[in-house]
Computed example of a mutant assay.
Amino acid sequence: MAEPEYEGPVDEPAPPPPPPRPLDAIDRDILHMLQTDGRASIRSVADHVHVSRANAYARINRLIEDGVIRGFGARVNHERAGQGASAYITLKIVQNSWRTVREQLKALPGAAHMALVSGDFDVLLLVHTPDNRTLRELVLTRLQSIPEVLSTRTLLVFEETDLEPEA
């Protein structure tokens, strides 16, 4: 049996991030408020958690810098936005190819979320497409042409509901 060809450096794990700073009750209240209303003003956040505006601003910036808050966005009704077909796609991939596959999945049109998971498959991918024909093309042409993807399984989403943070 021939040896496999050398294809460059092996994916090396990224250095671990610094340990997270502990969050206090005010930080948790700020997070909860921003999860409920990402458009809340600094003034309303400060009033809600009973701190000064400068303190609220500094805490939010620290939460962003520490990577606790990854960003702000809108919750989209994908069907109303012209993305009427949604699916979770499971992928089995070549061992140690996650970083390579991740970069290719990021470039897929309609890719909304991906996770490296344990169990019967390696990757869970959420996609939104205009229709089932586009979804079929995405799976059969784009995903299955990635050399590191060994198999896929598509789970159609019939209905979805965003869960709101508890009050």
Rank of each mutant, 00 (worst) to 15 (best):
L125N: 04
N77V: 01
G119K: 14
A111M: 14
L126E: 07
D162I: 03
A87L: 10
L108F: 00
F158V: 09
A54S: 09
V45H: 11
T152W: 07
T90L: 13
A46S: 00
E137H: 09
D24G: 13
K92A: 01
L116E: 11
L125C: 08
R133G: 10
E79W: 01
R59N: 11
F121W: 00
L135R: 06
H50I: 11
Q104W: 09
E137W: 05
T161P: 07
E103P: 03
A81Y: 05
D37A: 13
E164L: 12
T154K: 05
S52G: 08
D131L: 14
D66E: 13
R80M: 08
T161W: 12
L124M: 07
L108Y: 02
L156Y: 04
G71F: 15
V127L: 11
E160F: 13
L63M: 01
L143G: 03
T161S: 12
I93A: 07
F158I: 13
E137C: 05
E79H: 10
Y57G: 07
P130A: 14
L91V: 01
P20F: 03
A87E: 09
S151R: 14
E159L: 14
Y57N: 05
L125P: 03
R102I: 06
V49A: 06
K106E: 10
G71D: 15
L91G: 01
P147I: 15
E148Y: 13
A46F: 06
R75I: 06
P19Q: 01
Y88C: 12
P22H: 11
T154P: 03
K106A: 02
E164W: 12
K106L: 11
R53F: 00
D122Q: 00
T100C: 08
V68W: 00
S86Y: 02
E137L: 08
F158P: 14
A107K: 12
R133I: 07
D37W: 13
L135S: 06
I30V: 03
S44W: 05
H113T: 03
H50N: 11
S151Q: 10
Y88P: 03
T152I: 08
V123W: 07
L156N: 08
A112P: 05
A25S: 13
A74L: 06
T152F: 11
L135D: 00
R21C: 13
S97H: 13
H32S: 15
I26P: 03
P130N: 15
L63N: 05
A107L: 13
P165E: 09
N96Y: 09
G82I: 02
S145R: 15
G73E: 02
P109D: 02
A85Y: 01
L124K: 10
H48Q: 05
A85D: 07
P147L: 14
H78K: 10
M33P: 01
G71V: 10
R136F: 08
T90H: 12
D162C: 04
L124C: 08
K92V: 02
P130Q: 15
V94H: 10
A111S: 15
